[in-house]
């Protein structure tokens, strides 16, 4: 969980930096998208870097899900008889208890997100549209349910990272006494920054700052 999660977090950081290019205009954003597809040419064929990233991500997602599913199955086997009383959480950590269903929401979102902005099958601009147009038309004000879904999913991503980020350090044995407070604060901080940065784009389009 920790290693594959870390790979995905690093990707999210790169992803959001790319997204913010939308604020420097259509040309800059489309150029960036073009560059992503052609970086390394002619030393390596087009899309080499992008394909490499996609493969690493796909493997990470699959292994992360496999780890989550096997942990859940082990947990069910370890407690065949449930408690009659509602088990009250004694540890403060709302995010911790959203990990499993949150993960499912994120996977569903991921499918929609790829269909929307990668394969453009559910995007109004279509596969022929330039990346910038796909983004702007995809989050157009009349498509507010899409924006709402993105917002909910990103909040789930934020909660997932809130627990996942420090948890990775714990799992890898890198956390110790004095480090917990700064670790948890950093986890909360980075999660919030990532979510707000991701949300800034659809909301900028919604209120017409980016068009």
């Amino acid at each position: 969980m920790a290693v594959t999660g870390a790979v995905m977090v690093l990707f999210l950081i790169l992803h959001v930096v790319g997204n913010l290019k939308v604020f420097s205009g259509a040309e800059s954003f489309n150029e960036y998208a073009h560059w992503l597809r052609h970086v390394g040419e002619p030393a390596v064929p087009g899309r080499t870097v992008l394909t490499l990233i996609e493969v690493v991500l796909l493997v990470s997602v699959v292994l992360h899900m496999w780890a989550a599913i096997s942990l859940t199955r082990r947990a069910r086997k370890a407690r065949p008889v449930k408690y009659a009383a509602r088990r009250k959480s004694q540890a403060s950590g709302y995010a911790t208890h959203t990990m499993r269903y949150g993960g499912v929401v994120i996977v569903l979102f991921l499918i929609w997100h790829l269909l929307d902005l990668t394969f453009a099958t559910v995007n109004p601009a279509g596969a022929a549209g330039l990346p910038y147009d796909r983004m702007v038309q995809g989050f157009a004000p009349e498509r507010w349910p899409v924006t709402l879904f993105y917002t909910l999913a990103l909040v789930m991503v934020g909660l997932h990272l809130r627990h996942g980020l420090w948890s990775a350090f714990q799992t890898l044995g890198l956390a110790s006494g004095k480090a917990y407070r700064p670790l948890k604060l950093a986890a909360a901080g980075l999660s919030a920054v990532l979510v707000l940065a991701f949300l800034s784009v659809p909301f900028a389009i919604l209120i017409g700052v980016v068009k």
Binding site: K77, F169, Q170, A175, G177, Y180
Partner: peptide
């Protein structure tokens, strides 16, 4: 026994207050 997902429920109910830090040490 099941696997640890760092929920912290254990240390919260532990009558001796064994810290979660011990689990990081075990993992290490």
């Amino acid at each position: 026994f099941g696997g640890c997902t760092n929920t912290g429920e254990c240390t919260a109910v532990c009558p001796k207050g064994i810290p979660l830090e011990t689990i990081a040490r075990m993992n290490r």
